[in-house]
Every structure is written in C-alpha cells, then in structure tokens.
Design a protein around this nucleic acid. Structure first.
Length: 487
RNA sequence: GUCCCCUUCGUCUAGAGGCCUAGGACAACUCCCUUUCACGGAGUAGACACCGAUUCGAAUUCGGUAGGGGACGCCA
C-alpha cells in the first residue's frame, strides 16, 4: 500500500520555520516512497484563522517548492465549489457536517454526551480544584439524554459535546522518533470534541480526517505528543486503524525555548525577504533534527528525497542558527546557474533603485566575479551598488586621500590611462595601468591604490578593483575620476 | 503541581559495548594567499550533565539525581 502523509497547518499567519520543517519531512517521506503528500488546513478556530493567513501559508509552501499532490486548492482555497479530489474538501471549516456525523455516532453509542456548562462555570470549577494537581474537567452531575439535550438546543441553548473517558488503563503509543511512550488514561478528563458553536476541536477532527483521508504516517511537532493519548482514545472509539506517529523534536531559539517571534525571524516569508533560497532553507531545516551518517551537509531537494529515512530523527530539540543557514545559503547560491541567479537578484536591485547593464555577457561576468561574495540575495545590493553611476558619490571617509600630495597626479594618470583603454578593461589591463601609474608617479602602496579606489567606488576601502573595474564601462570610470579631479 | 519528552564542542550533529586519544560542519582564533575587504587554503581551541550499577571494557545498557523542554483549553 502506498503511503499517504499530510501537512496540516492552522492558518494564523505566515508559515513558521518549524512548520516548514514538519511539512518538509512529510513531503520527503511521501516522495521517497512514491506516495502522496496532502495539504489539509486546520482552520476550526474561527477566531484566529483567516483567509489571508491561509493565502500566506499556501504562498509560503509554494515558494518553498513543497508541492502537494492532494489537498486544498491553491487557487480557490476550496471555498469555491467542490474540490474534485477524493477526500475533499481539505479545509476543516468546510467539513463541519462530517464531524457532526461522527460526533453523533459517539453520542448515540454513549461514548460522548452534551455538556451545557458555560465557560464561566467551568472556570469556577477549575478555581475550586485543589492546587498542585492535574486538573481534569469533572463530569457534569447530570447527563441529559440525546433527545432531552437536543430539545434544549432547539430552544436556543448552547452545548458542547464531550468524549467520555471511562476506562482507566495505560495507553501505549508507538512513536517513530521516541519508541514506545505510555500515557495513563487518567491524565485527561472528558474532553470536548464539538464546541458549542458546532465547530469540532483539534483532537477530534484530526482523528476523523486522518482516518477518512487514509493517512498512513503522521509526522508532527513534539508538542502534539501528549495529544496523541486523546487521539488514540478516539481511534479506538471509532474502530479506526491508527497511523504511524512520529513526534519531531522542537525547533528552538538561541535561549533554547521554542522558537518564537522574540527570537527574530521565525517565518519562511521573512527568510525569503532576507534573500535566502528556498532550497537552502529546506536543506538547513532538514538537518535540524535529522541527519545521515555521512558528513554531508549540502543537499538539493531530490538528494534529500533520496537520502531520507524515518529512522534517523534526533529526539532532542535543535537551536535554529542563522549563521549556519547563511553559510548554507552561500553554498546553494554558488551552485545556481547564472541565469537563474540573476532572475533572483535583478528584481531586488530594481527594488533598491540600482541600475546595471543587462547584457547577458556582462551579467554573466559580474556574477562569476560576485558570486563568492554573496551569502544572501540581499548582499547583491552592496555588491552591485558601485556599478550604478547615479549612486557614485565621494564619501566622507575618502577625505584623507585628497590631502595627499600625490593623489592629484595619480588621478590624472588614471584618467589618461582610461582614455586610451578599451570600453571594458580586463583585470590584466587594469593591473598594467595601475603599474604604469606607479612608475610614472613614483607612488606605491595605499597612496597609489586608495586614490584609484576612490575614483572607482568613492571610498578608500571596499570591493576589489581587479574585479570591479572590468565591470565598469570606460565612460563611467571617466565620469567618476573627473568628479574626483574637480574636488 | 501532575504527566510526558529530552541531555555529545558556543550551535547543528556523527556515534547503536572495544574502531573514541570522541569524527564532521557553522561560528571563533592563528597562519598562508591578497598592495584593502572578502573568497580560497592550512591549522588551533572546544563536548559525552552528574552519581551509581552491569561489564574484562560504557558516550553507547540499566537505575537515580540535576537541568531543560512540552502538554495539561469549547488553541492547534
């Protein structure tokens, strides 16, 4: 039987890197096994789930390249018409009747009951409970028959549906990451499966959907480990077969707390904006909590699929280290072909108002020279900025250079050399010219190259001229040296 | 508090009883390359949380302690 895995985010904002990692592992295993990767959306919390957030999650997933074979339609988001795929719709908010039917079944079997207590009453119960103990919601004094309860509901009263936890025994859960985990059933009280507004609750729809969608493996974050007990109870109540569970260790911030906003960037979207490549981000998060036995670090996505296996998860939490991500991004950046790389860089330069020649040969040359100096796509701005004549400006830090006696002569010679030079100098041309200036002016060291650098980039430190000069048209260089001479 | 999970260099990790004087990567530091910065190359430093037990032998197995994390919702 072919495997079926799903990623089931709740849309409350951009996709978190922890979520992306969960999605990635599910994706990798589905692909590795030639199975199906499904996107389901857990948007039953009407307060927090929004259409915009769902859009963002879909876009983030698409940016990452984690394409789902089945699931929420990326265009209609399942809300228009009926999804043609086998187990749709894939948004839980659109599956209400399915859950209601399932809840009804448990109600009729006496495995669940209507609870009319209000939030306030329940809160009061919690307050009265003895401190220092695991609080479990007590069963109401009186449980109404279905008919009685529904009569009251028809009258406008609100009731939630609770699952009865009667049996006191240990539940054994086989976990891919952690092995056997045992939970005593008295860890939980009767828990809500349907809210009083009719919406199902996570643990309930998760079970119903995983069963109906024939999910075979559930790889999800460790924070769900203890939910698995409730889910196990529901699987048994319905007589459904449980999938294989794997509870992944958490992604942590520098302080070893669960990665959150206060650690800085936590969403994939932010990393996209910061100029990270999706392959690099995926490569990096794949290796947070999973590894191979060789020392390999750089993987393409197909290579990750090839290498992936369920028996190499690390069970302890992993700190998200952006420094290493940067390095990895640099590696992926270098591996990119120039055309593709430029297609990523160009819009960023444009957005920053930096203008560059567009000829393919020029771009190709520029990229071969700049590629190794880039960690993120954003770095291109600093690199390409000196190319744009409009942005050339003699910086304050260059002031000292203009106090040197020899500077003027060097600049004059530089200008004359330029006049005789080809439209674009080669590195060798440049070095030759520089050497001839050294001879004719009798200056060397910083008194030689700093004035030239100022005449190229406007400041005495920065990009290597041997690289930069060949990228600048003679006319640009002349314009700049003239500005220096006019100073 | 109760239950569950986790614990190898600063960070990500390799490691399934002798191959471990614990390997790799990022970061750090040093040197080389370089008439700046970077790239690149060569090195240095840096870890088995602790205590017991099992064993000829333990990072690796078992027990305990400590620390960290997670869950205890009509959030997911």
């Amino acid at each position: 039987m072919s495997v079926r895995l799903r990623f089931a985010p709740s849309p409350t904002g951009h996709l978190h890197v922890g979520g992306a990692r969960t999605a990635l592992y599910n994706y990798l295993y589905a692909k590795k096994m030639g199975g199906t990767f499904i996107l389901r959306v857990e948007d039953t919390d009407l307060e927090r789930s929004t259409e915009e957030a769902l859009r963002m999650q879909i876009d983030d997933l698409t940016w990452l390249g984690l394409k789902w074979d089945e699931g929420v339609d990326p265009v209609t988001l399942d809300s228009v018409g009926k999804n043609s795929e086998p187990y749709g719709p894939y948004r839980q908010s659109l599956r209400k009747d399915i859950y209601q039917k399932h809840a009804r079944q448990l109600l009729e079997q006496g495995k669940a009951y209507y609870d009319f207590r209000t939030d306030e009453e329940l809160e009061a119960l919690k307050q009265q409970a003895p401190a220092g103990e695991n609080f479990r919601t007590p069963r109401p004094d009186k449980i109404l028959s279905i008919a009685e309860a529904e009569a009251r509901i028809a009258n406008g009263e609100k009731a939630a549906v609770r699952f009865r936890v009667d049996e006191i025994r240990d539940y054994k859960i086989q976990d891919i990451v952690r092995g056997e985990v045992v939970f005593p059933s008295d860890m939980v009280g009767d828990f809500v499966i349907l809210r009083s507004n009719g919406m199902p609750v996570y643990n309930f729809c998760c079970v119903v959907d995983d069963a109906l969608m024939k999910i075979t493996h559930v790889l999800r974050a460790e924070e769900h480990l203890s939910n698995t007990l409730r889910q196990q109870m529901l699987y048994e109540a319905f007589g459904y077969k449980t999938p294989e569970f794997g509870h992944l260790s958490l992604v942590l911030g520098k302080d070893r707390q669960k990665l959150s906003k206060r650690h800085g960037a936590t969403s994939c979207h932010e990393y996209m904006e910061k100029g990270y490549l999706p392959e690099a981000l995926l490569n990096f998060i794949a290796l947070l909590g999973w590894s191979t036995s060789d020392n390999r670090e750089i993987y393409t996505i197909p290579e990750l699929i090839e290498a992936f296996s369920l028996d190499r998860f690390n069970s302890s939490g992993a700190v998200f280290d952006e420094e290493k991500l940067k390095w990895m991004n640099a590696m992926h950046l270098r591996a990119l072909d120039h055309q593709k790389l430029w297609s990523f860089i160009e819009p960023r330069l444009q957005a920053a108002g930096i203008h560059c020649p567009q000829e393919p040969e020029w771009v190709d040359r520029a990229l071969s020279l700049f590629k190794t100096s880039m960690e993120t796509l954003e770095d291109a701005k600093v690199l390409f900025q000196p190319i744009d004549d409009q942005l050339y400006k003699i910086q304050d830090e260059a002031a000292e250079v203009f106090t040197w006696e020899s500077t003027k002569a060097v600049l004059m010679e530089w200008k004359q050399g330029l006049e005789k030079a080809p439209d674009y100098m080669s590195s060798e041309d440049f070095e030759k010219l520089q050497n001839s200036i050294k001879d004719s002016c009798g200056v060397k060291g910083k008194h030689l190259f700093m004035p030239i650098r100022v005449a190229v980039i406007g400041k005495p430190h920065g990009a290597e001229l041997k690289i930069l000069v060949p990228l600048l048209h003679k006319s640009s260089l002349l314009k700049r040296v003239e500005m220096c001479l006019a100073k």
